[in-house]
Deep mutational scan, measured.
Amino acid sequence: TLFEALYDYEARTEDDLSFHKGEKFQILNSSEGDWWEVRSLTTGETGYIPSPYLA
């Protein structure tokens, strides 16, 4: 399933992933509550992002 970022986000820890509004992601793991592990389709990087920032 693909999701798109609604807002920009700046990583706060080394496990987080910074991203920009409009960036698209593949969800790798959504079992961690509000923090999902994703792969950016723009950069190929993986990390955790806050799920409320996605649509």
Rank of each mutant, 00 (worst) to 15 (best):
T1L: 13
T1G: 08
T1I: 13
T1M: 13
T1P: 11
L2V: 13
L2I: 14
L2F: 13
L2Y: 13
F3W: 14
F3R: 09
F3D: 14
F3H: 05
F3K: 02
E4G: 15
E4S: 02
E4L: 08
E4W: 07
E4M: 08
A5L: 07
A5I: 04
A5F: 13
A5P: 03
A5V: 04
L6F: 13
L6Y: 06
L6H: 05
L6A: 07
L6Q: 08
L6P: 10
L6I: 08
Y7A: 07
Y7E: 06
Y7I: 07
Y7D: 07
Y7K: 04
Y7F: 10
D8A: 03
D8M: 02
D8W: 04
D8Q: 03
D8F: 03
D8L: 03
Y9L: 14
Y9Q: 02
Y9V: 01
Y9H: 05
Y9R: 03
E10V: 12
E10P: 03
E10F: 13
A11F: 04
A11P: 03
A11S: 14
A11G: 12
A11I: 03
A11K: 07
A11W: 15
A11T: 03
R12I: 14
R12Y: 07
T13I: 05
T13Y: 15
T13R: 14
T13V: 09
E14M: 10
E14I: 09
E14Y: 09
D15C: 15
D15Y: 14
D15N: 14
D15V: 12
D15E: 14
D16E: 15
D16L: 11
D16S: 13
D16V: 13
D16P: 02
D16M: 13
L17C: 06
L17Y: 04
L17P: 02
L17V: 15
L17S: 03
L17N: 00
L17G: 15
L17I: 10
S18V: 05
S18L: 04
S18T: 11
S18C: 07
S18A: 06
S18G: 05
F19Q: 02
F19D: 06
F19S: 02
F19A: 07
F19V: 08
F19N: 00
F19P: 02
F19K: 01
H20P: 06
H20A: 09
K21H: 04
K21T: 11
K21N: 03
K21S: 05
G22D: 03
G22Q: 00
G22F: 08
E23T: 04
E23M: 03
E23Q: 05
E23Y: 02
E23K: 00
K24H: 07
K24W: 15
K24Q: 10
F25Q: 01
F25M: 04
F25R: 14
F25A: 15
F25L: 06
F25S: 00
F25W: 01
Q26S: 05
Q26E: 14
Q26L: 13
Q26T: 07
Q26V: 14
I27M: 03
I27C: 04
I27Y: 04
I27E: 15
I27S: 01
L28A: 01
L28Q: 01
L28D: 01
N29H: 11
N29F: 04
N29Y: 04
N29Q: 06
N29A: 08
N29K: 05
S30I: 11
S30E: 07
S30H: 08
S31L: 09
S31A: 10
S31V: 07
S31N: 08
S31K: 08
E32Q: 13
E32I: 10
E32G: 12
E32D: 13
E32L: 13
G33P: 11
G33T: 11
G33L: 08
D34P: 07
D34K: 11
D34A: 08
D34L: 12
D34E: 10
D34S: 08
D34H: 09
D34T: 08
W35K: 08
W35E: 03
W35M: 09
W36Y: 04
W36M: 13
E37W: 14
E37L: 15
E37T: 11
E37M: 13
E37S: 04
V38C: 04
V38H: 00
V38W: 15
V38L: 00
V38N: 00
R39L: 08
R39T: 04
R39K: 09
S40R: 12
S40L: 05
S40E: 01
S40C: 04
L41Y: 02
L41I: 09
L41K: 02
L41R: 01
L41E: 06
L41V: 08
L41M: 10
L41T: 05
T42D: 08
T42Q: 09
T42M: 08
T42Y: 06
T42A: 13
T42E: 13
T43D: 02
T43W: 01
T43H: 01
T43L: 00
T43I: 02
T43P: 00
T43E: 01
T43Y: 00
G44E: 02
G44I: 15
G44D: 02
G44L: 14
E45W: 08
E45P: 00
E45S: 07
E45L: 14
E45A: 11
E45T: 13
T46M: 06
T46Q: 12
T46H: 06
T46D: 09
T46W: 06
T46I: 11
T46S: 06
T46L: 14
Y48C: 10
Y48T: 05
Y48S: 03
I49K: 15
I49H: 00
I49F: 01
P50E: 07
P50I: 04
P50K: 07
P50A: 06
P50L: 08
P50V: 03
P50Y: 15
P50S: 05
S51Q: 04
S51C: 11
S51G: 09
S51P: 11
P52M: 15
Y53N: 12
Y53S: 13
Y53M: 12
Y53K: 12
Y53W: 07
Y53I: 12
Y53L: 13
L54S: 07
L54K: 06
L54D: 07
A55S: 14
A55T: 10
